[in-house]
Design a protein around this nucleic acid. Structure first.
Lengths: 398, 398
DNA sequence: AGGCGTTTTCACAACGCTTTCCAGCCTGTT
DNA sequence: AACAGGCTGGAAAGCGTTGTGAAAACGCCT
């Protein structure tokens, strides 16, 4: 079968079918069609154009290459490349001819070939952090979406991979060594993040959504939790509360400590010193926060407002208050952090701090691309302020 | 500066630094080091090995290529390729030598070069569907995570891109034409999905999570909503309910109609004919479902159980019941669909149907890879049964 | 030692692009 | 008329693989 065409060696089957079709329509031998489409030397150059036209009309994209464009425009492939990349002066006339050929063939450069030649894949790796079934991380999920969008604006794409908690750097190593990606975006970082240590050591370009320890200098964008909780606390003060408690995270996490600080700052500013019992800490789960709320409300002088450092915890607190028959927003105010989508669906809605996740993603990508080019801007560690979203849980009028 | 090395043309700056370092440590001229590392002809072959060793010890990965491996193992690059791909017989002795060289250099093939040669990128495109700020789609987000994981098991990776609602096929076209991806995985399909029409027309390989209309034959995995709601209804019957209402979606959507059918099937089986007023329809939002619940509960003979075809709607229904001071799970039972992460955090927890999203993702990837290879299995349209998760909203004992 | 069939290995083209270097060509100047 | 110098375009090398066709090595028999 294949022997009917002595160039068939190396030609893929799908191509053969196409070829047969085009050759028939153009009224030339298959071999002629192949040569025409592939830009090889031909007896009659008129046939070439005819074949190419026919193929285009039939909608056979057939892996149009730079060669085909060159042949149709009657220039060398170098010239086509010059025009496409604006990398070398080309006369206006030639440029027009080339552009027309590109257009009529609907040519698109093969990114793989480009990558090989440039040793740049224009791919950014992003490792999903492991999530237990039943859990979710809506914020990070939205982050990846916006990141993809921002990357595309600069001609990059995001390659996602799953990143096991054990051996957290393996995939990063592999993706770089095989030239799959040009670098990485990290999220969900921690103070002594093994990935950051590795990337820093190996000199691999990356940017992060989130901070680590102060010794490591790398580009990141993060939310200023201090300002966030400060805003929430001020808001509660303005609503007339003076007995304000907080449910924070265990001491030692960067963002956790920052958020707590905002609480102290705001109260300090208002000249209030909260009783020691109002300052509670719990793991970042709904049920732990539930227990923290129970402890708070059993105090001789219970708070009239409870600040939580995450929406998840606020949910636990609200569950407890509901259970006790207390009216959220009237008897006790509650605030969260993150603007989890569910915050707006609850009843009453949860007052919270919205992370401008689209901006965060865009800035992380910007930082990453700068890093890739080797020119780190002066401000490569960015803190963004969250936005206070007031809902019924702290303001009964809403 | 650069002139100190007359091969410097075309050598990247970062490489130069490395080179200088290695040459110094190995005690050879820079040019010598370069030739050694790049596998070019050299005066003294002993130097070559020494240089390579030194470079490896210093941790300079320096883009180790198949050439370097060949040089170290003293075989041709073809032989190395044979060993690595097991694509051609190689004597055990040579194989060992090659493998040792690969090991000592910690060589990994360049995927870009492989892609170019094979015209296969081993990348699967996945378009994020546009999401309005404040909304979320936790199920699809989890889907992408599991999909990435499944793809990796077969040596593929997932490239995510943002897919605007206007001109929904543009990015698909672009990614295929530029050879970025080998095909696509779709999710969030609809009956007359423009993307599916395009991909089918263009003959581009893909597999979907979700169905379209019956005329189109393409590989997909979907949840059997009929069985799901059937299960939920049976569960409510077992709990002693006989006045069971449903809040469905507007007529016309494939999955919506299927889910409704499960309700009728189960009641039919039990010999119950629900009153016409118990069958309500609303858009898939919390607030629309809230109104539907209000209408139901104002009936002369209100239901004692309300089935919702999504968790989002169940949340709206629960909000209404809460508001009215009705005890969820005791006065009125509620069920949802999807097992949104929040279902387990509510109070009481929401009885719902869990989509085995990890399995769905794995099967979609399997279907896609089969499609790529051109061998579609007999069962290329798969319906998976969801799992009933019983919580307090339908069973007060929980 | 020569011949022959069977492994095993190698040189080289090809994949599609970018980029360097160089050769014409055209002006304008001497 | 000769020639310097600026423009424009082309030939070819190279990016790191894989696969083909052919040569080399090997073993066995006469």
């Amino acid at each position: 079968m294949k022997q009917e065409l002595n160039v068939s060696r190396g030609i893929k089957d799908s191509l053969m079918a196409t070829l047969r079709d085009v050759a028939e329509h153009a009224g030339v031998p298959i071999l002629e069609a192949y040569h025409a489409l592939r830009g090889k030397a031909m007896a009659d150059d008129k046939n070439r154009e005819a074949v190419i036209q026919v193929a285009a009309e039939l909608g056979y994209t057939l892996n149009v290459t730079i060669k085909d464009v060159a042949a149709l425009a009657n220039v060398s492939i170098a010239t086509v490349s010059y025009v496409l990349n604006d990398s070398h002066p080309v006369s206006p006339a030639t440029k027009r001819t080339v552009l027309e050929a590109v257009d009529s063939l609907d040519y698109r450069p093969n990114v793989t070939a480009r990558s090989l030649q440039a040793s740049r894949s224009r791919l950014i790796g992003y490792g999903w952090h492991q999530i237990k079934p039943g859990q979710s991380a809506p914020l990070l999920d939205r982050f990846t979406y916006w990141m993809a969008q921002a990357a595309e604006a600069s001609g990059y794409h995001v390659l996602t991979f799953s990143n096991p908690d054990d051996h957290p750097t393996a995939m990063y190593r592999e993706l770089i060594k095989t030239n799959r990606v040009d670098g990485f975006v990290l999220a969900h970082t921690n103070r002594n993040d093994a990935r950051i240590r590795y990337l820093l050591d190996a000199g691999i370009p990356f940017a992060a959504f989130g901070r680590a320890n102060d010794r490591w200098r790398f580009p990141y964008v993060d939310i200023d939790g201090r300002i966030g909780i400060d805003l929430a606390t001020q808001h509660l003060l303005e609503m007339g509360h003076s007995q304000i408690a907080i449910v924070g995270w265990p001491e030692g996490s960067l963002s956790g400590d920052g958020r707590m600080q905002g609480y102290f700052d705001a109260l300090d500013e208002a000249g209030i010193t909260p009783p020691r019992e109002y300052i509670t800490r719990a793991e970042n789960t709904s049920s732990d926060a539930y227990r923290a709320a129970a402890a708070l409300m059993r105090l001789p002088s219970p708070p009239t407002a409870i600040i939580c450092v995450s929406d998840l915890m606020a949910l636990g607190v609200m569950n407890y208050l509901n259970q006790q028959g207390l009216k959220i927003g009237e008897d006790v105010a509650v605030t969260g952090f993150d603007d989890d989508p569910v915050s707006d669906l609850l009843h009453p809605g949860l007052t919270t701090l919205r992370q401008p996740i689209d901006q965060i993603a865009a800035q992380v990508i910007d930082l990453f691309l700068a890093e890739l080019d080797g020119n780190r801007p002066k401000d490569y560690q960015i803190l963004l302020a969250p936005e206070l979203i007031v809902r019924g849980s702290s303001d009964p009028r809403r």
